[in-house]
Design a protein around this nucleic acid. Sequence first.
DNA 1: CAGTGGTCTAGACCACTGA
DNA 2: CAGTGGTCTAGACCACTGA
Lengths: 243, 243
Amino acid sequence: MTVPPGLPLHERIRSDFEQRILAGDLAPGDRLPTEQAVMQVYGCSRMTVNKALSALATAGLIDRRKKAGTFVARPRVHSMVLDVPDIAAQVRERGQSYAYRSIRRRTRPAGEGEDEEALLAGKGSLIEIDGLHMADGKALCIEFRLVSALAVPALAEADFATDPPGTWLLRHVPWTEAETRISAVAATRQEAEWLGVAAGVSCLCVERRTWRGAERITTVRQLFLGEAYDMVARFGPAQSALS
Amino acid sequence: MTVPPGLPLHERIRSDFEQRILAGDLAPGDRLPTEQAVMQVYGCSRMTVNKALSALATAGLIDRRKKAGTFVARPRVHSMVLDVPDIAAQVRERGQSYAYRSIRRRTRPAGEGEDEEALLAGKGSLIEIDGLHMADGKALCIEFRLVSALAVPALAEADFATDPPGTWLLRHVPWTEAETRISAVAATRQEAEWLGVAAGVSCLCVERRTWRGAERITTVRQLFLGEAYDMVARFGPAQSALS
DNA sequence: CAGTGGTCTAGACCACTGA
DNA sequence: CAGTGGTCTAGACCACTGA
């Protein structure tokens, strides 16, 4: 009864079990009461209980099996929520000035036989956009981007004075799927020169491919100065699905 | 009617709208039919429609506002699902042999005044576990770990012959929250020596802090040889909540 | 075969909020 | 104030699966 009364009943039930699980009061493998039992405890209908427990099952906190019952799930290791930062916003948040500086922008045919480029271009050509993300006038990240000209016809008239290409694309070509690969590389001489550091400096390399439905939109390779940048991933057992 | 009949109705409704959204047939900002309208189309009760659309709202594909209606959401940029790899499993998947090689294992008091260590140790001491992840006898990753002795008393008797410390901890001390920080660093001379490479080589640095409820469990810093390793993050608009 | 969760109905009252 | 989604009920039938 110390619970805020504004909360819907199904959320209160969900939250109650969630807390008992997170506190370790209910350990992995433990059996939860049946829906019938929970109904009686909360004095509500079965649908309300089902809604609460289904949410926990979707979130991966519990496993439900017919006849057997409901059990606290083993924690899953393999997925975390990764915050993908908006570079411009993040730079400004730190109180620095942000700027995008273009290195190259041109349209060209896809390389012959190169699967990756051909896949991206479809039956059209490629738009190549390379540039630097600057923080307080200093290079923070160098970015090499390829965009399918067919998929994004409006790009020809795009101006990156206000928004860098990534932000522009997000605003104009909503994507549905993306794949990001993260690794560490040493900057090549050319890359280091653009970044204003010595060749061989360690960089965080982010490669991202983006789709809209089945259609490939863009491929980008970003090299961040390793010390100046990092990414944070958080995990609460699929909390994102709950709140 | 070409739909597999085995699918529950609410999932079919959800899937129908999901596909129309992902295909771009319904664009961000577009309004979906009201629950009343969907009821009539599918010839079902409102609860069934509500279950389908609520799932899409939870997944972030649609926004629902009273009186105004239901709308296709703008794609969110800021969260992706990061696959956190189980190093041992991943090495074996590549057909290589996996081994964990201990470098150091000892119990010591927390450093004085060091907030991070003190926080982790609580009122107890720290267990320090450093080691190498080996693939086919070659070092792939060096790992520096601190564990709260209070939080994990069973660790004293743990044997890492079969499972490396990370896997052991996961099996024995289910965590509820973790925070991962990813960056690129150059290996120090000492680190490079353990890894069997030249000093200054670029490494992917993964730092993770793990909680169980409010209690800190472990802190780990892993240095992967950048070329030998990468991480993949995928995004479908919170698909994880759906499937 | 009996207990459990999965699904669905046909209603109801309400809070919110845009017209 | 009227339309919309949020929540909840008191039932029902069913599929699954462990005893």
